[in-house]
């Protein structure tokens, strides 16, 4: 039981009283990686692509453009960089767990920040579509008794987005840690009779956690990035399209 440790981000040092944690450092690493990838993919572009690099870059841009066009419509094509940035940041942050680094998305602060950004954009588009008074009046629909519920529903949007992403990544971390500890004690019980050092090596930890890692780290990370981007697009498009009423 003693070797299970599930902890949050480590605090490295304090800068003017602000704690600098693993989350911030790893986020900066992810940002630098993505920046480097963008520079690498886009330098020396030609009208007629000759390099594989440019084909990959064009493929990415085309996929995200199609995604935005299908889900938001033609007049929101300006959102392509934003959605691509969210997809890339979220996926790469969660995939850091594959190289045994602390994924920044396992910290509620990161995803809550993104969700608040999306919330600000939703509110901005609602106000722009209806005017400030129309936006406030929207809370009293269909009758004024519903105002508290409407306000609650408005707050629930960023909270549920953040908790969904955070919960999925953290549940993977927690379950992996529990399975590791369980396999260690199981191999002590089953193989502890082996002589000398052999009895101390947890043989059962070889291979079995990889299956879990494929689901929780690879599949779940990409899925959550996709879902977060999808919800962002749907909410913003929904907010901007309320002007008809």
């Amino acid at each position: 039981m003693d070797n299970i440790s599930i902890s949050g981000a480590k605090i490295y040092f304090y800068l003017f009283g602000v704690p600098i944690t693993e989350t911030q450092i790893n986020s900066l690493i992810v940002t630098a990686l993505l920046f480097g990838l963008c520079l690498f993919l886009t330098h020396g572009l030609k009208v007629r692509p000759t390099s594989k690099r440019q084909l990959v870059a064009e493929w990415i841009v085309e996929k995200v453009t199609n995604l935005v066009r299908d889900n938001m419509g033609e007049r929101f094509l300006g959102f392509v960089p934003f959605v691509a940035a969210i997809l890339g940041l979220s996926a790469c942050s969660s995939l850091l767990a594959l190289v045994a680094m602390y994924p920044p998305t396992a910290d509620l602060n990161t995803v809550l920040g993104w969700a608040l950004l999306v919330f600000v954009m939703i509110t901005y588009y609602k106000i722009r579509a209806n005017g400030p008074l129309g936006y406030l009046k929207g809370f009293t629909e269909p009758i004024f008794v519903f105002t508290p519920f409407n306000i609650l529903g408005e707050i629930a949007t960023p909270v549920s987005m953040a908790f969904r992403h955070f919960g999925n990544i953290v549940s993977g971390t927690v379950i992996s840690a529990l399975v590791y500890a369980a396999l260690a004690s199981l191999s002590t019980v089953l193989l502890g009779w082996l002589p000398g050092v052999l009895g101390k090596i947890p043989f059962l930890q070889i291979g079995i956690p990889a299956v879990l890692s494929i689901y929780f780290d690879l599949f779940s990370s990409c899925m959550q990035a996709f879902i977060f981007a999808m919800l962002t697009m749907l909410y913003i498009a929904g907010a901007a399209n309320t002007e008809e009423n």
Binding site: F163, R164, G167, N168, V174, F226, I227
Partner: peptide, 20 residues
């Protein structure tokens, strides 16, 4: 379906966060 599943998962995730 995947999007719907993700949204249906929210209540379970709330339970998990409460447990944590």
């Amino acid at each position: 379906m995947i999007l719907g599943c993700a949204i249906a998962e929210t209540t379970g995730i709330y339970g998990f966060v409460t447990g944590l």
